[in-house]
Design a protein around this nucleic acid. Structure first.
Lengths: 151, 151
DNA sequence: CTATTTTCGTTGCGTCTGCAACTAGTGCAA
DNA sequence: TTGCACTAGTTGCAGACGCAACGAAAATAG
């Protein structure tokens, strides 16, 4: 087996590990957020993304990117959250195709209540990953990342 | 903002980055495998996991773990692949609750055809991640992982 | 200024997912 | 042996997803 084949296997292994850690964290978050606050992980992600904009608007397209969702899924997700009164759609004047979304006070409140759950479960899930031999190297690498905003 | 808050933010940032890289890779793989071979990513993952067992059987439960899927989803996924003649269910004698799955020749053949696509797209997706400033550190860390089998 | 292309968000449709409830088989205990 | 807890896999159900097709608004070409 040559160097090229090794590289292929390293990438495949890295991808499997990444997927395993992702699944571990997402499942834990999903259960906790859903059970304690009636929020799915993507819903929390959207509320959090809006909140980290410092009260500023966000376009559907940006939201889709932040939540790693398709356009259609984003439309329905925003509709869902709007129906629950957690955010509002705001038509924007300068580009009449665009639609901005904005957290409502209820949305901010729910987010603040859910955040401790999110942070705790994330911490626990990462600890569990670090305690799992084949996941530990990647879980450890996550801690080394510079916390600079994800555009 | 104290040290504890920093740690919370580091974890949150790491999780967002992980999710972003995961989504980038999965989306690219999904499109390519679906378009060129009619396989979804999980389907490919299952075939590959079975293949890496060196012709050995795998229980549904193991398969569920390997594919990061629930039991029910695994049942249906296996049913789907069985209907397409890519694998077979094998009842196991010593534990009559258990069901083993095994690749058929057609399954191995399709896997071998799909593997180059998978490897190529994975390489491209990782390259794209490394070219994206906020994803690059994590993408780089993946390359440093020791390619030891994921049990 | 009109025609074409592109971008943005929405909707119909088929598919896949997890949860909870269920059946069947195993293993331990009294 | 009988009873009970546990594990393995399947199924009904409701919800969420992506793709492709769509309409509306903006940008670009000619």
């Amino acid at each position: 087996m040559g160097i090229a084949d090794d590289a292929v296997e390293v990438r495949a292994h890295g991808w499997r590990t990444l997927a395993a850690v992702h699944s571990l964290i997402e499942t834990a978050l999903e259960r906790a957020l859903q059970g304690e606050h009636g929020l799915s992980v993507v819903e929390y992600t959207v509320l959090d993304a809006l909140d980290r904009q410092d009260g500023w608007h966000m376009r559907m397209r940006q939201l889709a990117r932040a939540a790693a969702l398709s356009n259609s899924a984003t439309t329905r997700l925003v509709t869902r959250l709007e129906d629950r009164g957690l955010l509002t759609r705001v038509l924007c004047a300068d580009d009449r195709r665009g639609i901005y979304t904005e957290l409502t006070p209820a949305g901010m409140e729910l987010l603040e209540r859910a955040r401790p759950t999110h942070d705790r479960v994330l911490r626990e899930a990462l600890a569990e990953a670090e305690a799992t031999p084949e996941l530990a190297p990647l879980a450890g690498a996550l801690r080394e990342l510079e916390p600079r905003p994800l555009r």
